[in-house]
């Protein structure tokens, strides 16, 4: 896979339409990671659209909410009512947003060549890639870290016999994170950032992470 990825990077570098974004292929500066979340009109990357994007830098144990990016995106089609109920962004809220191309460019400038962090990041990246291909001719080249994967590696795998439950709420509770209202791009990105920081910085070695999950639910 790394070989395939390396080849794809080289091909993409060649295919990149806008030379301003060559920085996407620079070395990761390593100064920060970026937690990312998108809210969309639905779950099908082929038909649905992005309505909002949030990105927050993570520097070591610090989640830099003071350095954050929050973008609302102007939809190109009519929003469906059911959908509005989920992310609570009404057409009128989005009217003042950026056109998708502008939103994407702003996001890329913020992220640069840094590593992305997210929950079910695959989906957000697939959504973004749709627009990447449309506007820049390439897919998102950044390295991605999936927090549910980290959680699986660090917690679930050590505890055999445990159900594999990688739901967002389950992870948040197991890691004893404060409850935030979900389906808000900023809050979801922040939760992903907290999961990442806690899973990577959490507790000294002699105090394994299992201690978090052994607490009876609800005590958190």
């Amino acid at each position: 896979m790394p070989i395939l990825r390396a080849i794809r990077r080289q091909v993409d570098r060649f295919k990149l339409r806008d030379r301003e974004f060559r920085f996407l292929f620079d070395r990761d500066p390593g100064d920060a990671l970026v937690a990312l979340d998108c809210e969309t009109t639905g779950l099908d990357p082929w038909v649905d659209e992005i309505v909002s994007i949030a990105a927050i830098k993570i520097r070591g144990n610090r989640i830099c909410t003071s350095e954050r990016l929050e973008i609302l995106v102007q939809p190109t089609t009519e929003l469906e009512d059911e959908n509005v109920k989920v992310h609570r962004l009404r057409p009128i809220d989005l009217a003042g947003g950026l056109p998708m191309e502008e939103a994407l460019r702003t996001l890329l400038r913020f992220v640069g060549s840094r590593t992305l962090v997210g929950y079910y990041l695959e989906f957000d990246v697939a959504m973004l890639d749709k627009y990447m291909l449309e506007f820049l001719g390439i897919s998102l080249p950044n390295r991605c870290i999936e927090v549910s994967g980290l959680y699986y590696d660090k917690v679930v795998r050590r505890d055999r016999g445990r159900y594999i439950d990688l739901r967002f709420a389950t992870i948040a509770e197991a890691l004893d994170l404060p409850a935030l209202s979900q389906h808000d791009a900023f809050n979801d990105a922040l939760m992903a950032a907290m999961m990442y920081v806690k899973l990577t910085q959490g507790g000294p070695k002699e105090r394994p992470l299992e201690t978090f999950v052994e607490r009876p639910p609800g005590l958190g």
Binding site: N61, I63, T65, S66, L190, M194, Q201, P204
Partner: peptide
Amino acid sequence: TAALDIVFLKAG
């Protein structure tokens, strides 16, 4: 609010 960050601090 604009200046708030969140830090994670390990036991000890």
